[in-house]
């Protein structure tokens, strides 16, 4: 019961912080809200008993990506948003579409619920082991070897790309 309450709280806070990211004018504040949102999402992951994923979420998102973004904001000196949010007609249309799509998708998801999704009769033991590192590590280097290696190439490409774009030309 307590756990449910805590889950609701975490979910609500995640939503609130996410909304703040989208509406705050000050770019730095926005980024800080984003950090909070990432932390709270990690908390939600915990309720799924996926401790490792929660840790990754904190380390990669809140730790790496967001620091990166905040660093960039500081460097570009963009603390205050260049302009207020003006709703041009296209943007209003975009909001209206989002407001339509959101309930529509929820409605669609509720229809004849997914089959595999309903088969989730998980034994408690498996449930507890599931989030643990060994299990994941095991498959990561066997079944998922190829995408794993490809991700490493991808990270290389990210480095090359960022350098190629950001560096000044020699000549």
């Amino acid at each position: 019961m307590l756990e449910s309450m805590l889950l609701y709280l975490a979910a609500a806070l995640t939503l609130v912080t996410s909304v703040m990211v989208a509406v705050t004018r000050n770019t730095v504040h926005s980024a800080l809200w984003m950090v909070a949102s990432c932390f709270l999402l990690a908390v939600v992951f915990l309720f799924l008993r996926l401790q490792f994923m929660a840790a990754l979420q904190v380390i990669i998102y809140a730790g790496a990506v967001m620091m990166f973004i905040i660093f960039a904001i500081m460097m570009l000196n963009l603390r205050v948003n260049p302009g207020r949010i003006q709703l041009r007609s296209t943007k209003t249309a975009g909001l209206v579409l989002v407001l339509f799509l959101f309930p529509a998708l929820l409605l669609l998801l509720g229809m004849g619920r997914g089959i595999a999704a309903l088969q989730g009769q998980v034994s408690l033991r498996a449930l507890e082991q599931f989030g643990e590192v060994p299990l994941l590590a095991n498959v990561m280097f066997s079944d998922y070897l190829l995408p794993f290696e490809l991700v490493s190439i991808l990270l290389t490409v990210g480095v090359i790309g960022a350098v190629a774009l950001a560096k000044k030309r020699k000549d």
Binding site: T90, K91, A93, G94, L97, V98, F100, L101, A104, L105, L108
Partner: peptide, 13 residues
């Protein structure tokens, strides 16, 4: 991006 959303909305409908 809005046009993309529009497309999704069409598919959704």
């Amino acid at each position: 991006a809005v046009s993309l959303l529009l497309g999704v909305a069409g598919l959704m409908l």
